[in-house]
């Protein structure tokens, strides 16, 4: 009953049920991810509300150029990912591989820039709990410990985000391998589709992290 290219597992009635189950399973997983990041966002709201000046002082330490470039890179990677899923849906096997590789490269660029940023933070003694003596002379009313909270959240949130990116890069490499062997067809490309959802979700998290972490009180001049 199932078409030749579909791998139908025994407990499903038909391919449609199997695909449906996987898709809503993935969506539910993403909802758990929303709540997982949600705890961190809640902490962000609480402490930004309590220490607005300290958060501005911390935000000032970030490199806005890196942040903006990374945002653009991630949006590009979302486009290439969407195009990979599209290519799969219309059955262009070579294009799937091409777009997946582009996505992988863009993901790599993002992580590379992130690594440079982290390194700058390390050099600037701005890693809470490890070495934290930031230069905040411009803010006489701000306590160092409260800037530490900002950076704890910065590293917590971007770190968790980067971890998701790393996992994504691992999975996409696997998909490229499978796709290059022609595993995904117009009839069956569920893994590409589900991975696409994951990748876009990671992009969405960054869409919020960027203004919340990088763009605080930018108008007061850097």
């Amino acid at each position: 009953m199932a078409s030749h290219s579909v791998t139908l597992r025994h407990h499903f009635e038909n391919a449609e049920q199997q695909k449906d189950a996987s898709t809503i399973g993935m969506w539910m997983f993403l909802v758990t991810e929303i709540m997982f990041f949600g705890g961190l966002f809640m902490a962000y709201i609480a402490y930004r509300g309590a220490y607005p000046e300290a958060f501005a002082a911390g935000s000032e330490k970030l490199n806005i150029v890196y942040g903006t470039i990374n945002t653009l890179v991630l949006i590009c990677s979302s486009l290439t990912m969407a195009m990979a899923v599209h290519s799969a849906a219309v059955g262009k096997k070579k294009m799937i591989v091409l777009f997946l590789i582009l996505t992988l490269i863009l993901g790599g660029v993002f992580l590379g820039i992130k690594a440079v940023e982290y390194h700058d933070k390390y050099v600037g003694h701005e890693i809470p709990g490890v070495n934290f003596h930031p230069e905040i002379d411009g803010h006489p009313n701000v306590a160092v410990q409260n800037v530490s909270l900002y950076f704890a959240l910065y590293f917590g949130m971007t770190g968790l985000h980067a971890m998701h990116m790393i996992v994504g890069v691992g999975m996409i490499s696997f998909l490229i391998f499978k796709a290059s062997r022609g595993a995904y067809t117009a009839e069956w490309h569920t893994p590409v589709e589900l991975f696409g959802l994951y990748w876009h979700f990671v992009d969405i998290v960054w869409i919020f992290l960027f203004p919340l972490l990088y763009l605080i009180d930018l108008h007061q001049g850097r």
């Binding site: 966002f41 486009l79 969407a82």
Partner: peptide, 26 residues
């Protein structure tokens, strides 16, 4: 991104409901 890249605009009511439930809980 959710509507078009993730296809929720074209998806079933159930998918929409799951997204909304997640956001409401948040």
């Amino acid at each position: 991104v959710i509507m078009f890249f993730m296809h929720v605009y074209y998806s079933s009511k159930l998918t929409k409901a799951i997204v909304i439930a997640g956001l409401c809980t948040l």
